[in-house]
Design a protein around this nucleic acid. Structure first.
Lengths: 205, 205
DNA sequence: GTTCTTCTACCGACCGGACGGTATAATCAA
DNA sequence: TTGATTATACCGTCCGGTCGGTAGAAGAAC
């Protein structure tokens, strides 16, 4: 069917672009390189994307959608496994540690959010907003849980719970930089375990 | 004096390049843009740097040297203020929090290490090694202190001290991403305070 | 059931300009 | 004079983007 091939062609372009942008950034990834990789022509590319920057937006929207779905499904899983908000958070971080272990097995894991934010000047406001919204929703979901947890388990130290929620994102993004810069085993898993240990110590275990 | 102007010319090129690379990345920063900004010509640029990638290496080496000096001087200051290794670490992180507050006042703070690692494919092995060495020396210096601290104050939980040292770098780099992506006050300071709180809880205080 | 039209999907030659880089002359202090 | 430094003009390549066109499926009309 016509529509089917069209959709898969678009997806293949997005896949190729994401992989190359991950390695060398957006500006250094030319349209020629992308179409060469998937064996298509320029006409095809510009049929699916009006400009290179529209590709960028489509990419980040796809990435953010997957990110959101992962956030929600992981939190739902955690909620099914315990009724205590603190335990839910710890299980949630535990699920992320599993993902971290997969990332650690990857040769060069990358996050499109970070890639874009280091070439920030190239993208428009709407693209920036997609990234900001994604991060804010992690803060909202995890922050809400942390507040519920704090009610039942008063923290040992005064701590701002929004920035504590942000810290998960911060650790994740920082781990990307470190795992790319130095070759060592288990960066993500180790860092996320520290974050979990902090939560355990803070809320008392 | 000839040498003097030469040196300052070179430095001005490096300054301009760093600022623009910070905003839009390396690939998207053209030599023409750099020389326009400082009001020079191409001949001048290529007298000082054989290629664009040599500029990249000079930039990262200058950045890494400053980073190293900051690491050593901060640790020395901390060592003068206390004899207890744990207190030294906590003071050290406290000094970083002060730096974090300055970064938070900045409109778009950036770290060249992270910028390069998100355009990794563009740089040669030696450039990568400069970054890896810098991160390793943070691990070495802070990790050493943490081991000394752990002897006198046994940690509440089993914790790998190298990755605990790495966590400072991780938090720092992650905070760059977050502070660029969402506009909110005090990202660096808040995140580094969480790191310090973790250390305090872990080693008991 | 064959003609005409329309639509999606794709192709590849081409354009102007920007890119990294070079060649070489001019300037100037010591 | 010499060597460090700066200016100007230029080169070939690659860049993002345009454009005219093709193939083929799906209707619609008769």
């Amino acid at each position: 069917m016509a529509t089917k091939t069209g959709a898969s062609t678009r997806a293949r372009l997005l896949d190729a672009a994401e992989e190359m942008i991950n390695r060398q950034g957006f500006a250094a990834t030319s349209i020629d390189q992308i179409i060469d990789k998937v064996g298509m022509t320029k006409g095809t590319f510009f049929y699916h994307f009006k400009t290179k920057n529209e590709l960028a937006r489509a990419l980040i929207e796809r990435f953010a959608a997957a990110d959101q779905q992962f956030l929600r499904s992981s939190m739902e899983r955690a909620e099914k496994l315990s009724d205590d908000p603190l335990q839910q958070v710890l299980i949630f971080v535990g699920l992320l540690i599993e993902v971290g272990e997969q990332l650690d097995a990857n040769p060069q894991p990358g996050c499109l959010f970070a890639t874009y934010c280091y070439e920030r000047g190239l993208f428009d406001e709407e693209t920036h907003r997609v990234i900001a919204d994604a991060m804010m929703s992690w803060r909202r979901v995890l922050g809400g849980k942390l507040r519920a947890a704090a009610e039942q388990h008063p923290p040992k130290t005064e701590a701002d719970l929004d920035s504590l929620a942000d810290m998960l994102t911060v650790v994740f993004e920082g781990a990307f930089v470190m795992s790319r810069s130095i070759s060592g085993p288990g960066v993500f898993a180790a860092q996320l375990r520290h974050y979990r240990a902090y939560l355990q110590l803070l809320f008392g275990g």
